[in-house]
Amino acid sequence: MTLPRIFRYGDIPEDKSGAAIISKETKTDWPLWEVFIRSKQGLDHKHAGSLHAADAKMAIENARDVYTRRMEGVSIWVVESKYITASNPEEAGELYEPAESKIYRHPTFYELPDEVNHM
C-alpha cells in the first residue's frame, strides 16, 4: 500500500522535480530552478523562491525580473532544483526530535554581567 505523502514548503519530492504540484506541461518543458538572493554585501544568500527556465542564463535573468524588481538583491545564485537533496519529512522524528530534550545545548544557563550587551 502506498501512503499519501504531504509535502511541506521546501520539501523535495522523491522524483526530484522540486515541487509538490507541477503540471505535466511545465515538467516536460523547462526545468525548475531554486533562486537564492543576497540582499546586501556581507550578508548570506537566502532562498527567495523558484522558477522555470530553459538554462542557467535564463534562470538568472528570470530571477532578476521576478525577485529583484524592488531592489531586493545585489547577487543571485540559481541551482536546478533536482540537484538539491532534501531531508525526508517522514524521518523528522529521528532527525529532529532527539535535540528537543537537550536544552543544555542552548547557552541559556549563564548569568550575564550587566555590562554585557547584545548577547
Binding site: W30, L51, H52, A53, N62, D65, V66
Partner: peptide, 11 residues
C-alpha cells in the same frame, strides 16, 4: 508564454 517571461516583457 510562461509566467517568468510575462514578467520580463512587462518589465
Amino acid at each position: 508564454p510562461v509566467l517568468e517571461q510575462d514578467i520580463a516583457i512587462t518589465n
